[in-house]
Design a protein around this nucleic acid. Structure first.
Length: 916
RNA sequence: GCCGGUGUGGCGAAAUGGCAGACGCACAGGACUUAAAAUCCUGGGGCCUUAAAAAGCCGUGUGGGUUCAAGUCCCACCACCGGCACCA
């Protein structure tokens, strides 16, 4: 630990500049139509250019949930990367939008409320204050005037407004987009229905097609948390939060029809710049699979069993059917002698915990129903079983089993001695039994149809066409993606702007509140627990729930995802009281009217956050975005054009940081010891942004020393020593002594020497290229190389130092502002007036001519092994280089007694002599 | 099992098919100091030799291949990390 003396007085520098930026609103982004004040650094840089005439750069962090524990070192990793790029782009002349806010609804504040009775608002406010303090201490260039908080009524009124949009829309399969619910036409028999129930039927028709709809479905209920959880919030049969047991329970729930967008969510991945693996995760989650549905007639029943298969080409090999135990036909078709066995099996399955049911190496189980179906191509009667390896929630909840060519079916058939037929011939020499890949169809012919000899793909399309013409089935696409369970039984979330009423017949129905009723605030409670009969906490507020006209309010609330689904849009126009966002702000920042728009970047230019949101948040936000796009509220199809995941930061022991391991690094302590600039620099120097990497406090010391060397390049050693001694003696006057530190005597306003220019321009080139590719670690190493060289200079030209500070500024903004200021003042006393921000200094360009060397060193290899390095003029021709290389003494030694077969000369790079 | 990613010194890492290990940490030696800290300078892949060196050989998870030349490209494996997981 670097105890004692500081490398440089960061403790005086950093707060000073943070206050200065804050006072100036230095990093405020201006919406179209706004005019920055004349003295603002933006105006100084861009003169009379209107903000909206500049190319925009929208750079976004995943906003944090402000937990009571405060920031950990993982948060600032992404934030530092985006801040560096925000500052870099500002310096390059872009108009940068870089906002921050709080995803502040959520369980911890509510559970704290249950324990202590403290209103979650209080807890939330305290946590937000801590987070904000910690984030601001890092000197990030956020536009704090755009700060949003999902729990602010002025924010969540628009979350509720978007919900109303979803509620009041349906997905038109013909146009493949969302449309207002009024455009949904009733079928003629419904519109003609004059009966008393007509209205109710029409209502039901609409309600079943809304993008937000109600269903009575078994959901994951967690007793301890007192709420239902979404599928994805249940991990290994336990709640993701807290690890409590969960059970299935039928409840009335709100759902969002994300499945309608499955195809578009998949398709549009092709037009955004996300990592391959992230796109794959989304593709897997959506899980599109193409195949066919096939109807099997039942012996002795008029009903048919519909199955979904991706391998219709194997239909001749289907030797039995399997229904999910919950399938609706099971009841009907089970023969009396099998009834008790079937019932017993169903009970056993329903009793199984979901952990057991999804157990990996579990042995297959099932029972026959005694019923038979007819294979439409062979005409054979095949038995119908039930088994829990078939899921009710996927496809049609029923499968045709082809044990010859499906691993699961093969396992099942082996266990129960069911017939296994070969219908696919492998291309190689593999065993056909259990062969699941593409091959050639065999044993697949009847009087009307033959697939024999066809490759799998052709066989699939041939039989699908045949099935369709015969009326036995058709092409079908299935998705793993399920509709989004959108209600929670919680207090600390957005209430639904929905009321429930009864019609004349006594049927319960729901109705949306008008937009004018927003925001709908949650009621004041003194107990935040669910009611004893399992009603959500909101149900405790009788007066709130019960409306004067007899209607009752919906008592569910929205999940935490809701607020984070659209916050990037609210940042664009966060104080707008009339709209969720003005069209002018939206079209400018989301890129549709950017002035440099040869190709406008659609959406957020760069979004950085953790992989933990790879599917859920990113899929939900894309879904909402598309709905808003369809309804004409916004102008882009996708919200986030480029997305990068930062890697995890591990503890010093290489383990994941956790309280229980005691390896958590507290940023406050690091900041105290080394300052914000060193902290930022270290987070970026550790390695590539996207990699997982361990924390190492010694490494912080390394970059801290580097900043100390930067400081010493600029300041006079004696005056620094004086400052140290004086401020130790009289700490109260530290600032005064600090201001009288003089510049280094070598700093002069002179023409730089050639080697100085070369060092600078090599650095400019490397840092620029690295920032363009988000290679922060190597950019920092280039800055270090420059400093190592510059420290040896007697004369330190001001122009060189200024350019260097401009390069370092995105990484270590506080130190750079301070040194810049001192250069500007020429060593005079620091003045409070005329503060500007370096953040707007133009990024230096590099001159490649300055980097040209007169003589270059060329490695010479013999048979691929390095034998010598020769110096040649940079202008040497290949022949000249070859001559020099061959005449080298060392090379001669290795050529002795050998014949040269070939000489490879790579201009300016290398010579390799092949000899034998 | 499937999908994606990663394997390079004691450690974090760097390298458009062209001198492997930039930069930093740790370590060692030296300067400054009464001494220490801080700072500055120098040296560090391994092996084999040697008083020290030079020279030589070997080295990017393993085994093959392409090439004048492979950390980088191709094939087959192994290990670790992340995601999904009876999705028909």
């Amino acid at each position: 630990m670097a105890s004692g003396r500081r490398q440089y007085p960061f403790h005086l520098i950093e707060p000073k500049w943070q206050q200065c930026w804050d006072k100036l609103e230095a990093f405020r982004a201006w919406n179209p139509g706004e005019t920055p004040p004349a003295g603002h650094p933006f105006s100084l840089r861009h003169k009379s250019t209107k903000p909206e005439q500049l190319p925009k750069y929208y750079i976004l962090d995943m906003f944090p949930y402000p937990s009571g524990a405060g920031l950990h070192v993982g948060h600032p990793e992404g934030y530092t990367a985006t801040d560096i790029l925000a500052r870099y782009n500002r310096s390059k002349g872009k108009h940068v939008l870089h906002p921050m806010g709080w995803d502040a609804f959520g369980l911890p504040a509510e559970q704290y409320a249950i324990k202590t009775g403290q209103h979650p608002r209080k807890t939330t406010e305290a946590n937000v204050a801590t987070f904000k303090r910690q984030i601001q201490a890092l000197g990030f260039s956020y536009d704090w005037s755009r700060e949003v908080d999902t729990t602010d009524p002025e924010y969540f009124r628009w979350t509720q407004w978007i919900f109303l949009k979803l509620y009041n829309s349906w997905f038109n399969p013909e146009t493949k987009r969302a449309e207002p619910i009024d455009t949904l036409k009733y079928p003629s028999e419904l519109s003609a229905d004059q009966s008393p129930e007509g209205d109710a039927r029409r209502r039901a028709f609409r309600d079943n097609r809304r993008l937000a709809y109600v269903t009575e479905a078994p959901v994951w209920w967690c007793e301890q948390l007192g709420t239902v959880l979404a599928n994805e919030e249940v991990v290994d049969g336990k709640s993701e939060v807290g690890g409590f047991p969960v059970m299935r329970k039928p409840m009335r729930q709100w759902m969002l029809r994300i499945t309608a967008y499955a195809d578009r969510l998949l398709e549009d991945l092709n037009c955004i710049d996300w990592s391959h693996s992230l796109k794959e995760m989304q593709r897997n989650w959506i899980g599109r699979s193409e195949g066919a549905q096939v109807d099997f007639t039942l012996q002795g029943h008029s009903e048919k069993v519909r199955v979904f298969t991706t391998r219709p080409d194997t239909l001749f090999g289907a030797t039995y059917l399997v229904l999910a135990p919950e399938h609706r036909l099971v009841e009907q078709i089970t023969i009396p002698s099998q009834r008790s066995a079937v019932e017993a099996y169903k009970t056993a399955v329903s009793k199984k915990s979901d952990l057991e049911r999804t157990e990996l190496a579990k042995e297959k189980s099932g029972v026959p129903t005694g019923a038979f179906a007819i294979n439409p191509v062979t005409g054979n009667a095949i038995p119908i079983w039930i088994a829990d390896y078939v899921l009710i929630s996927y496809g049609t909840g029923a499968i045709m089993a082809v044990p010859g060519h499906d691993t699961r079916d093969f396992e099942f058939a082996t266990l129960f001695n069911l017939p296994v037929l070969q219908v696919v011939q492998p291309t190689g020499t593999q065993e056909w039994r259990g062969f699941v890949d593409d091959g050639f169809a065999v044993n697949s012919a009847n009087a009307q149809l033959s697939l024999d000899g066809l490759p799998t793909q052709e066989a699939k399309s041939k039989i699908t066409t045949w099935l369709e013409t015969q009326g036995f089935g058709k092409k079908m696409v299935n998705f793993k993606l399920r509709d989004w369970l959108f209600s929670r039984q919680r207090y600390w979330g957005e209430p639904f702007p929905i009321v429930w009423k009864r019609d004349a017949e006594g049927n319960l129905f729901h109705e949306a509140l008008p937009e004018s009723a927003l925001p709908l605030l949650p009621p004041i409670l003194d107990d935040y627990k669910p009611t004893p009969d399992g009603q959500p906490p909101l149900a405790r507020a009788r007066d709130w729930v019960q409306l004067p006209d007899g209607a009752t309010r919906e008592t569910n609330s929205m999940p935490q995802w809701a607020g984070s689904c659209w916050y990037y849009l609210r940042y664009l126009d966060p104080r707008n009281a009339n709209e969720f966002c003005s069209p002018a702000a939206e079209s400018y920042w989301m890129g549709t009217t950017a002035p440099d728009s040869g190709k406008p970047t659609p959406g957020v230019d760069l979004y950085v956050g953790g992989t933990e949101h790879a599917v859920l948040h990113l899929l939900y936000a894309r879904f909402w975005h598309k709905v808003l796009f369809d309804l004409g509220c916004i102008s882009t199809r996708e919200p986030f054009y480029k997305l990068v995941n930062q890697g995890l930061i591990l503890g010093e022991d290489g383990q994941k940081m956790s309280k229980s391991r005691g390896n958590v690094i507290n940023p406050d302590i690091v900041l105290d010891e080394y300052g914000a600039d060193a902290f930022r620099l270290y987070e970026m120097f550790m390695g590539p942004l996207e990699m997982t990497k361990p924390w190492n406090t010694k490494g912080v010391e390394g970059v801290y020393r580097f900043l100390g060397r930067v400081w010493r390049l600029f300041v006079d050693e004696q005056s620094e020593t004086d400052y140290e001694q004086n401020s130790t003696a009289e700490p109260a006057r530290a600032l005064e002594f600090f201001d009288s530190i003089r510049l280094h005597a070598g700093i002069q306003d002179v023409q730089p020497a050639a080697d100085q220019l070369k060092a600078l321009h090599a650095c400019i080139k490397k840092v620029t290229e690295d920032l363009d590719n988000m290679r922060f670690n190597t950019a920092i190493s280039a800055l270090m190389i420059f400093i190592n060289e510059a420290l040896a200079w007697q004369t330190r030209p001001v122009s060189i130092l200024k350019d260097f500070l401009t390069l370092l500024q995105p990484f270590a903004p506080h130190l750079c502002e301070e040194l810049w200021k001192r250069l500007e003042m020429g060593g005079a006393q620091m003045a409070e007036s005329a503060v500007t921000s370096m953040g707007y200094m133009a990024w230096p360009g590099f001159n490649p001519e300055l980097l040209v060397e007169d003589t270059i060193e060329i490695p010479v290899q013999v048979n691929g092994k390095l034998r010598d390095v020769v110096k040649v003029p940079a202008t040497a021709t290949a022949a000249e280089i070859e001559a020099v290389a061959q005449s080298s003494e060392k090379v001669q030694q290795f050529l002795a007694g050998k014949t040269i077969k070939k000489v490879i000369v790579v201009q300016r790079k290398l010579v390799n002599i092949a000899a034998a």
